[in-house]
Design a protein around this nucleic acid. Structure first.
Lengths: 131, 131
DNA sequence: TTTATATATCGAAAATGGTTGATACAAATT
DNA sequence: AATTTGTATCAACCATTTTCGATATATAAA
């Protein structure tokens, strides 16, 4: 199904010499990516996007201490209410946090599962020396 | 050092009643976040940002198969050369991939360490049912 | 039912990020 | 030296995201 552009084959032929092998190689490269489900990739990007903001990382860090309501989080991150609420909804939509309504309050907590591991992992990566 | 806004204390006092405890609670919330080094948070956000794009996730997925040069990657992701190069430099700046010059080619590979674990983790998170 | 308060949403401006053709640069071949 | 080719950079445009005051909604207390 991966449509093989002749330009790519030509370029690959220059790279490795043999035209037949080149076509094969292009085909392999294309099939490696076309096999990936676009929706799945987008979903993974959504998760990373949700974590790709300093304010939201701070919120996640706060929630490691336990459940908190929106106004506590707002005080913790020291941002306007509308901004805090916006970030919370992004985290919620991505599935990283869960919301529980309690009277006039919304209480938030980290989702079970891999969120904490992810935070630990990125800390590890940050601390790793570049080589 | 965390400057305690009186507005926050007032709000917290309304929440939990006692003014002294409120001041204490606000102080605790603020210190939880002010303790976080802004540079470290930004660095972690940079890592997540680098992974927060479908094309870059596809590149990382390609590189799981092994080292590749830029033009192979370009064919794999089926994007213009300038676009591919741009994404590669973001991944490199974030420390997720390493570059090795080889004649007129730049060859890229995944950085050792937690990158693969990160990709495995996000796959896990994506597959996890929302509750 | 009026008031107070926690949260969500709106709207518009500012900032950031992605795309892509054109061009510059670098290394190798002729 | 001239040409080819892989890669990086530039600049302009477009799309998305962030920010934040203003406003709306919802729940509870008075």
């Amino acid at each position: 199904m991966a449509h093989i552009s002749e330009e790519a084959v030509k370029r690959m032929t220059r790279l490795i010499g043999d035209a037949e092998k080149a076509r094969c190689k292009v085909d392999k490269l294309r099939s490696m990516t076309s096999k990936l489900d676009e929706l799945e990739i987008d979903r993974e990007a959504e998760i990373f996007k949700a974590m790709a903001d300093p304010c939201r990382l701070t919120i996640l860090s706060l929630l490691r201490e336990g459940e908190m309501c929106g106004c506590e989080i707002m005080i913790g991150v020291d941002r306007p209410q509308s901004s805090t609420s916006h970030h919370l909804s992004i985290l919620k939509d991505a599935g990283l946090i869960k919301e529980r309504k309690d009277g006039r309050w919304s209480k938030y907590r980290l989702s079970e599962g891999a969120v904490i591991e992810m935070l630990n992992l990125v800390k590890l990566m940050r601390e790793t020396k570049h080589d």
